[in-house]
């Protein structure tokens, strides 16, 4: 479909012309993780034990941070009105938009995570599980966060409200993601957790775009 190709081109151009939007969450992620060894002191056992939860909480906050501006500029310049009025299905357009955003910000975060994992003393055998859990989990975080971003885009200072709306929804992903890593750290099988994460991802891919579209219609109608 040519409209999806044009949307892809548009989003990639927009992201490349303001690289700070992509870079800031990544730097935030790296700094938050780097703060913990400084705060907890040089205790390799302790750091290794808290690493799964720590990496996941930091990744979750970084994704949330990156989503705050997802629809903001489109809302302000009227592009969202044009998308709502388009004969194309809004949910599909938004799914494409969120996926492009994830490809640029979420995927970079996933690729950065093993480095930070090693920094916290995670054994190398855990890194594939770390990668897999983030690879399945961050799209869910992006899609759920986009629902909140769609609902709060019309508000002047929606940032904190977005966090309050979305963070409770992130709990299952957080439990499953850090659970997978925790299990891998103790030498237990982590397949179950990953399958649960995968099913959450499938569910979010199928249903979240509809909620995002509905949220945007409400925001545009205000």
């Amino acid at each position: 479909m040519s409209v999806l190709a044009e949307l892809l081109k548009r989003e990639v151009r927009l992201l490349c012309r303001r690289p700070g939007e992509l870079l800031n969450p990544l730097v935030f992620f790296a700094i938050v993780v780097a703060l913990f060894p400084l705060a907890l002191g040089a205790q390799p056992q302790l750091l290794q034990a808290v690493a799964p939860g720590l990496v996941w909480v930091a990744a979750l906050l970084a994704v949330l941070l990156s989503l705050e501006g997802l629809f903001r500029s489109d809302f302000e310049d009227g592009s969202l009105e044009q998308m709502v009025l388009s004969p194309q299905p809004l949910a599909l357009l938004m799914l494409a938009k969120v996926l492009v955003h994830w490809l640029f910000s979420g995927l970079a975060l996933v690729l950065l995570a093993p480095l930070l994992g090693v920094m916290l003393g995670l054994p190398l055998v855990c890194l594939p599980v770390l990668l897999a859990s983030l690879l399945l989990g961050t799209p869910v975080l992006s899609l759920l966060g986009a629902i909140g971003a769609a609902l709060t885009v019309g508000l002047k200072r929606g940032g904190l409200l977005l966090a309050l709306l979305v963070l409770p929804l992130y709990i299952p992903v957080l439990i499953l993601g850090s659970g997978a890593l925790q299990a891998a750290l103790q030498g237990l099988p982590s397949g179950g957790y990953l399958l649960w994460l995968a099913s959450l991802a499938a569910l979010a891919l199928a249903l979240a775009p509809l909620a995002i579209a509905a949220g945007l219609r409400i925001s545009v109608a205000e």
Binding site: R10, R13, L14, R17, R18, S73, D74, E76, D77, G78, S79, E81, Q82
Partner: peptide
């Protein structure tokens, strides 16, 4: 509309 859907960065 008033905001005509013109993206500044494009």
């Amino acid at each position: 509309g008033h905001a005509a859907g013109i993206q500044e960065r494009l």
